[in-house]
């Protein structure tokens, strides 16, 4: 389990499981907290994702990409597995609550101005898993579009479009639920 991982940006630095956790646990926890449906689910997801990464650390091949891209693919897969378990029972609610994206800048601006973080987070959590994964990676973790694409298996262009669509769907939800 102590296998070394060579960083692409610091060839001399070997990444141990401790170092992996030290570097990335905060980002993984933020990602998990952003997309998971509850705090206990977030705990489970963060632990599962990091544990998968630590246990697979020997499989990382620097010639195939950066450690960040490798890690986020693992995290995204863990998130997808977690979501599959829950969405079996939630899909009807998702369908009923789904509203087609609409463009209404003035309304959105008014809503955003009054929206509390907790409400925004709640609406984010109700998005389809793929949408909230994209938004969490882009805005929660701070990856750029290309990095998000690498994590979810899309081209940069497609990722940019997918993020826009996800934002539009979030906007639509905010409109529907505005006070």
């Amino acid at each position: 389990m102590e296998a070394a991982l060579t960083l692409s940006d610091a060839a001399t630095a070997a990444l141990t499981p401790d170092e992996l956790c030290r570097r990335y646990a905060p980002s993984v926890c933020r990602f998990a907290g952003m997309i998971a449906g509850s705090s206990s689910d977030a705990d489970d997801l963060a632990q599962d994702a990091l544990l998968r990464a630590v246990r697979a650390i020997h499989s990382y091949d620097p010639s195939k990409g950066s450690p960040e891209a490798w890690l986020w693919r693992i995290v995204v897969n863990a998130g997808r597995d977690s979501a599959r378990r829950r969405e079996r029972t939630r899909w009807i609610v998702e369908r009923l609550a789904f509203t087609a994206p609409r463009e209404s800048e003035s309304v959105e601006a008014a809503v955003l101005a009054r929206l509390r973080d907790a409400d925004l987070h709640a609406q984010l959590r109700l998005l389809p898993h793929r949408d909230k994964t994209l938004l969490a990676l882009r805005y929660g973790v701070g990856l750029d579009t290309a990095e998000v694409g690498a994590a979810v298996g899309l081209s940069t262009d497609s990722t940019g479009k997918a993020i826009r669509r996800a934002l539009a769907r979030l906007r639509a939800r905010l409109e529907v639920t505005r006070p």
Binding site: C29, A32, G33, M34, D43, L50, Y139
Partner: peptide, 16 residues
């Protein structure tokens, strides 16, 4: 707003 969003998240130290 998403970039600045504040929310509960797992404690990184405990998870680590």
């Amino acid at each position: 707003r998403l970039t600045d969003l504040a929310f509960d998240r797992p404690d990184a130290g405990r998870v680590t």
